[in-house]
């Protein structure tokens, strides 16, 4: 039998169950997110200038989730994503590769990387391209440590990006979109507004034109990525930015791009820039 579900029947059904009995949250609920009673998150702010002809206000995906899901992110003991941060920290301090080095050999401690998540993807002068955090980690492993690089979307990689994001929590996203990064940014914007697949859906159709609306039982967010990697309850694990992009294009009945592809790097830069001004939240908790 042909499967013609609009948005992946099983996934939608799972959300329906998760939502049953949950209180829904929405824009204008006047909520605040302060993690561990000390990290104040900006979950709503004026849209960055490049976006103001489209949106006036940008919202963290946290705003759209149920009270129960929101609460899990407010305390690290309740946030299931923090287990992976611990695993990332262990790897950070472990020697890997032929050069006898760990991440800590150069970077001392994870906190010294607190400005990374908010400024990536970022133009890399030496390589002449825009790099994501994952690409930077792979570069360190192959060019400095003599180590076998992590797979782009492997558990080890997600642990490490979760660690790097966690030490940057509360810092406003501020990726550069001008200068040498501009061409990549424009490519990402082009992809954002392209209607992919047999369902002909662009990112904007759902996340710009319909955020806040229900699509069957799912509450559409603005598709911000300041909370990545995110702990998704339906996956019971950390989900990377590119994995999420791939899932969205798959749900258009489209042929996706690959994790780590130039197209997704460009899209990541563009989507990150739509969140300039929101705070780094990863690992966030989402449904």
């Amino acid at each position: 039998m042909r499967k013609t579900s609009l948005f992946g029947g099983a996934a939608v059904a799972a959300v329906a169950i998760a939502l049953a009995g949950a209180t829904s949250a929405d824009i204008g609920d006047d909520e605040e997110l302060i993690v561990n009673g000390e990290i104040e998150m900006i979950i709503e702010t004026a849209a960055p200038e490049h976006l103001q002809d489209r949106l006036s206000t940008i919202y963290s995906g946290w705003v759209f989730r149920s009270d129960e899901t929101q609460a899990m992110q407010a305390d690290d003991f309740d946030n299931p994503g923090m287990i992976f941060v611990d695993q990332g920290l262990e790897a950070f301090e472990t020697v890997m590769g032929t050069e006898g080095q760990s991440c800590a050999s150069c970077h001392e401690n994870a906190e010294s990387l607190s400005e990374v998540r908010s400024t990536y993807p970022k133009w890399d002068e030496e390589r002449g391209l825009v790099q994501t955090v994952e690409m930077q980690i792979i570069e360190c492993q192959t060019e400095r440590m003599g180590a076998e690089p992590y797979g782009y979307d492997s558990q080890d990689m997600r642990n490490m990006t979760a660690l790097i994001s966690s030490v940057g929590r509360g810092i406003p996203v501020n990726v550069a979109i001008d200068g040498p990064a501009q061409e990549t940014w424009e490519q990402g914007r082009e992809i954002y507004y392209t209607r992919f697949g047999q369902l002909e859906l662009s990112c904007a159709n759902c996340h710009e034109d319909n955020y806040g609306n229900l699509i069957r039982a799912d509450h559409l967010s603005q598709g911000q990525i300041n909370g990545f990697p995110t702990y998704r309850l339906r996956n019971a694990g950390l989900v990377s930015i590119h994995n999420r992009f791939r899932g969205c294009i798959r749900d258009t009945r489209g042929e996706t791009f690959s994790v780590g592809s130039p197209e997704f790097v460009a899209l990541e830069l563009y989507v990150a820039s739509r969140g300039n001004g929101l705070t780094v939240e990863g690992p966030s908790v989402r449904n």
Binding site: R2, K3, T4, S5, L6, G8, T194, R195, F196, G197, Q198, L199, E200, L201, N205, C206, D209, N210, R246, I249, R250, D251, T252, R253, G254, E255, T256
Partner: peptide, 21 residues
Amino acid sequence: IMPSFYRVSGFTRPGNAFTGR
């Protein structure tokens, strides 16, 4: 935003149902 329920051409990167391929 509404998908076309009886059309088979003119798509960008059409996939094999929901496989992503």
